[in-house]
Design a protein around this nucleic acid. Sequence first.
DNA 1: GACAATCAGATTGTCGACAATCTAACAAGA
DNA 2: TCTTGTTAGATTGTCGACAATCTGATTGTC
Lengths: 230, 230
Amino acid sequence: MVKTEFSPIADTTRRAGIVALLRRAILTGQLEPGQKLNELRISEQMRVSRAPLREAMRELVQEGILTSIPYAGTFVINVTAKDIDDAYSLNKVLDEFAIERTWKQRDQRFFEELDRRHEAVKQATRDRDTTRQIETALQLHGLIHEWADNSVLLETWQRLTSRLQMYFALHQQARKEAVPAEDIHETYVALLKGDDMRAAQRHAREHIDLDFEELLAHARGLERRPLKGA
Amino acid sequence: MVKTEFSPIADTTRRAGIVALLRRAILTGQLEPGQKLNELRISEQMRVSRAPLREAMRELVQEGILTSIPYAGTFVINVTAKDIDDAYSLNKVLDEFAIERTWKQRDQRFFEELDRRHEAVKQATRDRDTTRQIETALQLHGLIHEWADNSVLLETWQRLTSRLQMYFALHQQARKEAVPAEDIHETYVALLKGDDMRAAQRHAREHIDLDFEELLAHARGLERRPLKGA
DNA sequence: GACAATCAGATTGTCGACAATCTAACAAGA
DNA sequence: TCTTGTTAGATTGTCGACAATCTGATTGTC
């Protein structure tokens, strides 16, 4: 008998679809930080009622990429330099922890997945598709968190990721040019395959440092940027 | 002129009130793990419509203490021994990070707040109010995370806290007796006031160890406990 | 001119009713 | 007996309308 594989069913509820749509719009920078989300307008554009839209927005508020003020509105969060710095320093700690937890459990499947994700980054880089490049790079980094077999860690990292992706998108959009074309993940992948855990941890720290330094500098320049009104 | 103190305004929106009510019910163990939340029944009991109730539930789902299955229902999360273990090990990492970040910023206000919260724990212990004892102990531990001046860390810790509180409540409810009466936080507080950061970090690890070991043992005993139906 | 009161418009919060889906029980057929 | 189809009841998901609140513009008063 042939083993058949099924792809997951498309979103079962409108709410889930809306969440996915909104999240994507926010993370790709389509919706700008500080921008207000008008419920009526969005619900009309999406051809849904406000009920599932509002529920979707509540989810994204808890996810940390929207913020809500009663009777005033729901807004895309504003990204301050401090936010980036906070996320960045916590991310270092989490990465170190994830590598430690993952280390013993690395197996063939892990290495294969590592290569697959690395390849995806390289493909996006070749295509000059910066949005996808950000997505894939974060997925590559996420592997150690998925593999660490700690649900709370994974959840936490995913929350962080949302923000990081937002920051990167904002950053990239602002300079209007591609992220460095040369692949900076080569060493990272190699170390994850190697035998020196400490070295891998150290590199994760420094590598992320590089990505962030530039980002931070840019973010500080944007500080106190005026909001987009409704 | 007399300095007047105002109590916080009652929740501006029904949704917020519902969230607070539900959260409390869950964290105190009033709603058991695995239990299904019937929207119609709850909305009637609270005298509100299902709309704000559903929005509140979405928030708690994202907060991680409820879980939702489309068209099936929303349930209080089930607490497995592994969940506790995961939360516990991540908490160690976060505590260490928080202490490091807080250390340089300790000042008079910090020490005062530390004493205040410590006193609250002792008071709850004297009163044999176990629920409050859990609450205050977690608030004591939360101080370093609040002081670390890292919003993402604080947010993460608060999410962890919800679960820990649930675990503790479950644990405490099951044994039907008070948490150890003698105060185990004395050393912790003293070390946070001292000069040896490493020692404080080490103690945080081991102290939490103590709290958790017992909890873990108990949780493993509950594994695969049957769910409560609707 | 400065300030408070008032009001209209827009937007968010809440409600009750209807539609879609699930579950469990039962019947029909191989 | 096992499987499949059907159905009724309960529950969740969605909708359109109404109520509460905010914003700002306007008016009136000093």
